[in-house]
């Protein structure tokens, strides 16, 4: 065998992929990934009945609505904005879904599209007020939170509404897909996969990051940043609508108090997942892990038999821990350069 001679020294590729491990260690999602793995391992070794298919599937099912709405919130937070009204929107649109099917007797598909379209319109209104009239989204959506909850209560007189009894609708969104894998889990995975791909791979996703990272630079580079922000609000509204459609189909009724406080769990999932509230940083994968880690902690506390109220405390502690870990990663990254 003869050895091949390479002319000149082999050129080192400076831009080579740094490898999976180094990438993971430097990623904004590292903290939440480590927490998820640690909690999962703890449950596996120390808690009975944790590592069963049914239990894990139920955890994933419980985070469905946080996951779907959180996907929109991820786009919005990466774009440098926030929507505090997602819980109210989810509640109002659930009520509207039930109302549309029972009172107006509209077909389910029409009702579903109507509800999602109304979510888009709500998002567009927030987006225009925020991006065009320069009112901070925090304030605009805080107003939206109150207004939409009010509407939800007005429409129903504060009483839960009966929804559809259509069995096809129920099984499409509330039944089991395969075995004990819930249909709503499949919906969540589909939504997160689609928007995860859009955010990380497409031109629109790149525009979202640029808009949230440095709006002036984005505008200077010819990115229509105002439109990007409005679109992110619209997507969040549409996903609140989708979550409502799934919920009403699953439960067969709609409570005007649906989604009370959900905005906090959703924002927690996004922030625990490594997103920065100042914009430009975050990912759908991170949000999924953020929702998952909160779900796992809740599940473990129940299995261990701890008072349910501790779950709130644990969620709060989780947010603090995650933010501190992200802070630590950011400073370490700066030091490594």
């Amino acid at each position: 065998m003869t050895t091949m001679t390479v002319p000149g020294a082999p050129r080192v590729d400076k831009d080579a992929d740094p490898g999976v491990l180094r990438k993971a260690l430097g990623a904004h999602e590292f903290g939440v990934l480590a927490a998820t793995v640690a909690i999962f391992l703890y449950g596996t070794f120390f808690v009975n009945n944790f590592l069963t298919g049914d239990n894990l599937l139920s955890v994933v099912q419980q985070i469905t609505f946080i996951g779907i709405i959180g996907t929109g919130m991820t786009l919005l937070i990466v774009a440098g904005e926030i929507d505090l009204s997602v819980g109210s929107q989810y509640g109002f649109l659930s009520v509207l879904m039930a109302y549309s099917v029972t009172q107006w007797q509209l077909p389910i598909l029409v009702s579903a599209l109507l509800v999602m379209a109304l979510g888009v319109v709500t998002g567009a209104i927030y987006g225009v007020i925020t991006a065009v009239f320069k009112v901070p989204s925090f304030v605009v959506t805080l107003a939206g939170l109150a207004i939409l909850r009010g509407f939800a209560l007005l429409v129903t007189d504060g009483q839960p509404l009966q929804g559809s009894t259509n069995s096809a609708y129920h099984s499409l969104v509330g039944g089991n897909a395969i075995g004990s894998l819930a249909a709503q889990t499949v919906w969540m995975v589909a939504v997160m996969a689609a928007f995860g791909w859009i955010l990380s791979r497409t031109k629109f996703g790149y525009d979202v990051y640029a808009t949230g990272g440095n709006m002036k630079a984005a505008l200077n580079a010819g990115i229509r940043a105002v439109r990007v922000k409005i679109l992110c609000f619209c997507i969040t509204g549409a996903l609140c609508g989708l979550a409502s459609v799934i919920l009403v189909g699953w439960l067969g009724s709609a409570n005007p108090l649906t989604g009370n406080g959900v905005e906090l769990s959703v924002i927690a999932a996004v922030v625990v997942g490594g997103a920065s509230l100042t914009g430009g940083v975050g990912s759908v994968t991170g949000t999924l892990l953020g929702a998952l880690v909160a779900g796992l902690i809740g599940n473990l506390l129940v299995l261990i038999g701890v008072d349910g109220n501790w779950q709130q405390v644990a969620t709060g502690a989780l947010i603090l821990a995650a933010v501190l870990v992200n802070r630590f990663i950011a400073t370490r990254q700066a030091a490594m350069r």
Binding site: G213, N214, A217, A221, S276, G280, V281
Partner: peptide, 14 residues
């Protein structure tokens, strides 16, 4: 520049 994005993305921004 968008600080959070990498060099390549910034060269091609928009």
């Amino acid at each position: 520049l968008v600080d959070q994005r990498d060099v390549a993305t910034n060269v091609f921004l928009g």
